[in-house]
Design a protein around this nucleic acid. Sequence first.
DNA 1: TCTTGACTTAGAGCGCACTCTAAGTTGTAG
DNA 2: CTACAACTTAGAGTGCGCTCTAAGTCAAGA
Lengths: 148, 148
Amino acid sequence: MIGIIPMRGYNKSKNEIKMMTDTITQELTIQQVAEKTGLSVHTLRYYERVGLIHPINRKDNTHRRYTSDDIGWIEFLIKLRATGMSIQQMQTYAELQRLGDTTLANRVAMLCDLKQQAEAHIQELEEHLKIIRYKIEYYQGVLSENQS
Amino acid sequence: MIGIIPMRGYNKSKNEIKMMTDTITQELTIQQVAEKTGLSVHTLRYYERVGLIHPINRKDNTHRRYTSDDIGWIEFLIKLRATGMSIQQMQTYAELQRLGDTTLANRVAMLCDLKQQAEAHIQELEEHLKIIRYKIEYYQGVLSENQS
DNA sequence: TCTTGACTTAGAGCGCACTCTAAGTTGTAG
DNA sequence: CTACAACTTAGAGTGCGCTCTAAGTCAAGA
């Protein structure tokens, strides 16, 4: 789950030093968030551009610094994606979230839809798996017969 | 099992007449296969072009006529796709199938990989679903509190 | 004969979700 | 001062899996 840390020399890289500091300040660079979440830095910026992530605070008005709240939201986004929600739907969800408490019912409805979709998807996978398992068993039978 | 018959007027369409004939001859047109399988005619031709389906026999050397064996294979392809196999992998699988019995072990290996992938996918979905279900419940609690 | 509808092909186009590039800025170590 | 790593942006490019278009053939019904 943790990204590959490239070896740039024997000394600690700036990134590693930042990481040590950040265990105190709790604010992560985009690179660190990429490593932590599994998303690429490109994808993190892309998600922000398209409005899935609110504009991240900048240190000195330039470099992004992610808070633990930001990370929490990103990790939730990842779950929504992996469960089958499209980027478009996630944009809607993020927009509703930004609008505040009055949109809670709408968001719950979206989550319910997603839940049902995912449950149906699991059902479908299970059914297809049955046939695939059956095929495997049958072919393995044929193979062991030919062997003897 | 028989696809949806579109109403194009009160007289029987050519397609319907073909369908009646085909219950005798057991050979289906591309349109009928599309209705039966849920794939589009475009996709059926695409699958044939890229080698997922062997070249279908033609009536009078022009129009495709699908046998029940063809349908069986197509329905299996659909299951592979829905279980997460890529077009590329399916091309490999189809190629192995064409090469005959000596490739059986390879095909079984591919199916085992697919099985494991799909099982892992289901696991992942289940875990994400837990969190989504939890969120739904929590938010519904908040909503009913606000109501009272 | 004309129209209609189902089919044919080669190849272009599309939507999605990234993924990468080019050109530039910033900050620290040596 | 220089080098370098890490960051920044706008916008172009990619891979997948279709999906559609244009131009044409063919057969049957009015």
